[in-house]
């Protein structure tokens, strides 16, 4: 469980995270979605006590992270695949982390096996590929068998097998009752992995909720029909709850009905169809329309703050 209350972080005049409040529930995967520079990593660093909030508080399992007596068993974090000294071997890196909490070397070897790093465990991290570094970061996060996992862009640089593995891993961790909070700038990835979404843009929470609700709120399904007898078809399809628009002659956009219903109605009346397709705003389109609003919103706040400075 992660709870943030009016969390704010400013770097000089730039507001990276702007007064956000949220709760990440245990037992599910929550996706933190936003474009680069939206404030995802800053928020995660504040959760981990690495960055000090300018304003507001954030707690993990009821306490600020730094107050926990065994921090690595509370939260495992993959914050940045580069948060590892390149001159050390993977195993040495994990051993230094484990030593602070008296975690056994056996557990170190377990997480190395778990993340598929056995063959390179004694190699220096400097020579690792992005994907291997990512696996090592996940191994570090798993080290303390934590109740909460915070993973910043975990699939970044992973091959398809690795992406599947991460997806499977986080689902399993959540099913065990753990809190899983992972960030991404790819909505399609989130749609396949997360139960809940927290969408952030320019430091503000844009929307939050179950994945499907978030997607539905920004994209509706519509049916596109092309027919020489479009007007006749429109009369047939018209009933309560169905909205019909026509952008050009012979083409209809219908909402609130199904492709099957249109197809059957057309066949029953012998109407020729040139096209019948289900239209869905793609996830990326939905996401773009979400974050585009935040850009507009942001430019408004910039001008007001400039006015304040000029005063």
């Amino acid at each position: 469980m992660i709870e943030a209350q009016s969390l704010t972080k400013r770097y000089g005049s730039k507001t990276a995270v702007d007064d956000i409040s949220f709760t990440i529930p245990p037992g599910s995967v929550t996706g933190f979605l936003g474009p680069n520079g939206a404030g995802k990593s800053t928020t995660m660093r504040m959760i981990m006590g690495l960055d000090r909030p300018t304003h507001g508080t954030v707690t993990v399992n009821g306490k600020p992270y730094a107050r926990h007596r065994s921090p690595l068993s509370e939260v495992g974090a993959l914050l940045d695949a580069k948060a590892i000294h390149p001159g050390r071997s993977a195993r040495s890196h994990l051993r230094t982390m484990a030593a602070t909490h008296g975690i056994s070397t056996r557990r170190v070897d377990d997480v190395i096996d778990m993340t598929g790093l056995s063959s390179v465990a004694t190699k220096r991290v400097g020579g690792f590929s992005l994907g291997m570094g990512q696996r090592l970061g996940i191994a570090s996060a798993m080290l303390g068998d934590p109740r909460t996992l915070i993973l910043d862009e975990p699939v970044n640089g992973l091959d398809p097998e690795g992406v599947l593995w991460v997806r499977h891993l986080v689902r399993e961790l959540a099913s065990e009752g753990r809190t899983v909070f992972l960030s991404s700038h790819l909505m399609s990835e989130m749609a396949q992995t997360a139960d809940h979404l927290l969408v952030i843009g320019r430091g503000k929470i844009l929307t939050a909720g179950p994945v499907q609700d978030v997607i539905d709120s920004v994209s509706g399904t519509s049916i596109r029909v092309r027919s020489p007898r479009a007007a006749e078809l429109a009369r047939l399809a018209a009933r309560d709850g169905v909205t019909i628009t026509s952008s050009e002659a012979g083409t209809l956009e219908l909402r609130g009905t199904t492709a099957e219903a249109i197809g059957e109605a057309a066949a029953a009346h012998g109407i020729v169809l040139h096209e019948l397709s289900q239209q869905r705003a793609s996830l990326e389109d939905a996401y773009m329309s979400l974050t585009q609003d935040s850009v507009e919103y942001r430019s408004e706040t910039t001008t007001t703050s400039q006015k304040e400075e000029n005063r």
Binding site: P71, L72, T115, G144, E161, H168, L169, R171, E172
Partner: peptide, 27 residues
């Protein structure tokens, strides 16, 4: 959940089963 296939190259991808930490760890 149901569609996620078993990972093929990482047979050991299996975390401990309990939600409460079983690992002995204290800073």
């Amino acid at each position: 959940t149901t569609a996620a296939p078993e990972p093929t190259a990482s047979p050991a991808a299996r975390a401990p089963r309990t939600p409460q930490p079983t690992l002995k760890a204290r800073r």
